[in-house]
Nucleic acid binder design. Structure first.
Length: 493
RNA sequence: GGGCCAUUAGCUCAGUCGGUAGAGCACCUGACUUUUAAUCAGGUUGUCGGAGGUUCGAUCCCUCCAUGGCUCACCA
């Protein structure tokens, strides 16, 4: 029953603890077991005609009290919003009225009363009786300005949720986005599956993993950086449409668009290619927007973005030519590629191949221009170790990424299903790894073995849920769409 | 990891050209039976992020540290 023992109790907290011990010595309950409710706050106002002069019971947190002598007004907040309480001494009796005056902001109470409208037209509850359900021992942040300090908001998200209604709304929308995405995929006969979060080999993406240790097996495991290789094993196994919505973990820098753990939707569909994945992506996202927001158009940071299909489709080579004038279709030697990149001010490393230089120029000079939803197609093979290479253009793959507001929100390809080619690609990654590239992929022998049994032609797609939610809720940091973003531990300084 | 900025009451913030600090909300006392950022009268609240240094004296200047924000780098 202590506060944080590192923390001094201030006067406000001491007062509340004294009130609590007073309650404990009396007949009053400070922490009730249950209160039967019949209604929530918001519907009383929305459907006032149905409730007028009806008796209702509801429960919530006291957010404001306005005392006027022998009558008081108070704001009660539940998950739907607030409703005003009107409590009169001659209705509840002198003792109960005095007890009400003893309550603190933040206390959770249950009330019974009738619904009416005040002279000013505010829907209110004329309280007949009330019970303290939970005594609150800490003062709430300021009622008008709320809680602004970002550090406190992220560390104490519960407080943020209590006092900042728009935060509750953001996370409600996040939940709805995921629900509609799931519903859409289930309607299309995709099977939701769960694959391991702890991997003996961290595969399926280019990223540094977190390492953990299993004691009984005495072996290190990696938190997964992507579910891709497991989901493709399921396609080999004969599930022809699967998806997973779950966390990935990457041991990399943090920024407004990177959190060490983030949520990814990945799906795989047999007998499909990356064109099918483009259609699926634009239909899925526009459908989700329509269902959740009621429109396919969102305003993000003053930019209007329209998710309605079809989205622009352009190859990486074409996009680079459009925005830089460099025609990589005609470049096949490193010297020229290097010189052209330099001409547009893009720094390239000595060991980069032509494809990597193309990718670099794209990232440095084109990405920032892609505001409206755009599919960038045909990525160089060097940066796409799991994608199928194009039949007539072996330096490139059947891969695309979707960009919105300069941010990658989806990555997809016609999956590489040739086990020998996949083996060679892995080997190349292993070489890079041995040369010191910590993000290069590891050899996964079992995945090769699976491909050797035969994986049908398959389209695969990954959508970064957090970044999609940011776009749809107009929030500027990934931390605003993750309930408990990764933080350093609180220090005592 | 680099640069810039921030850290003052429970919360939102002001402030001290170096003389140990203030407002609003919250809280306490009193008045008030339709208010709603209720109002009116009075009152309380602080290791001024931490540790050193300079100084007669530091919340303020300097150094280091901590945490956070923005940004660059890294990174799908």
């Amino acid at each position: 029953m202590t506060a944080n023992n590192k923390e001094e109790l201030n006067d406000l907290m001491l007062q509340r603890r004294e009130k609590l011990s007073g309650l404990r010595q009396s007949e009053k309950v400070a922490f009730a077991e249950k209160y039967e409710i019949t209604e929530y706050a918001a519907p009383l106002e929305d459907n006032f005609a149905d409730f007028e002069e009806e008796s209702v019971q509801l429960a919530g947190r006291l957010m404001a009290i306005r005392t006027h002598g022998k009558a008081s007004f108070a704001d009660l907040m539940d998950k739907t919003g607030r409703v005003q309480l009107y409590i009169k001494q001659n209705l509840v009796g002198e003792d109960e009225y005095d007890f009400f005056q003893e309550l603190d902001l933040g206390d959770i109470i249950g009330v019974t009363g009738t619904v009416f409208k005040t002279r000013r037209g505010e829907v209110s509850i004329r309280v007949k009786s009330f019970e303290l359900l939970t005594k609150s021992l800490r003062p709430l942040p300021e009622k008008f300005h709320g809680l602004k300090d970002k550090e406190l908001r992220y560390r104490q998200r519960y407080l943020d949720l209590i006092v900042n209604p728009e935060v509750r709304e953001t996370f409600k929308i996040r939940s709805e986005i995921i629900r509609e995405m799931r519903r859409y995929l289930e309607d299309k006969d995709f099977l939701e599956v769960e694959t391991p979060m702890m991997h003996p080999i961290a595969g399926g993406a280019t990223a540094r993993p977190f390492i953990t240790h299993h004691n009984a097996l005495d072996m290190d495991l990696y938190l997964r950086i992507a579910p891709e290789l497991y989901l493709k094993r399921l396609i080999v196994g004969g599930f022809d449409k699967v998806f997973e919505i779950n966390r990935n973990f990457r041991n990399e820098g943090m920024s407004y668009k990177h959190n060490p753990e983030f949520t990814m939707m990945e799906l795989y569909q047999a007998q499909a290619d990356y064109h099918d994945m483009m259609e699926l992506t634009e239909n899925l996202i526009s459908n989700v927007a329509e269902k959740v927001l009621g429109t396919t158009t969102v305003t993000y940071d003053d930019q209007e973005i329209d998710f309605a299909p079809p989205w622009k489709r352009i190859t990486m080579v074409e996009a680079v030519e459009e925005f830089t004038g460099i025609n990589f279709k005609e470049i096949d030697d490193i010297e020229t590629a290097r010189k052209e990149a330099k001409n547009v001010g893009v720094h390239v490393e000595d060991d980069m191949s032509v494809g990597e230089i193309l990718n670099e120029v794209f990232e440095e000079r084109v990405e920032e221009k892609l505001i409206q939803p755009t599919f960038i197609m045909d990525y160089p093979i060097e940066v796409s170790p799991l994608a199928k290479n194009k039949e007539n253009d072996p330096g490139f793959t059947y891969r695309f990424e979707a960009f919105v507001y300069s941010r990658e929100i989806a990555n997809a390809f016609s999956e590489l299903n040739d086990p020998e080619e996949q083996y060679r690609r892995f080997n190349k990654q292993v070489e890079m790894r041995e040369a010191g590239d910590e993000e290069a992929q590891m050899m996964d022998e079992d995945f090769i073995r699976a491909l050797e049994y035969g994986m049908p032609p398959t389209g695969g797609l990954g959508i970064g849920i957090d970044r999609l939610v940011m776009l749809m809720t107009n929030t500027s940091s990934i931390r605003d769409v993750i309930l408990f973003p990764t933080m350093r531990p609180e220090s005592n300084n």
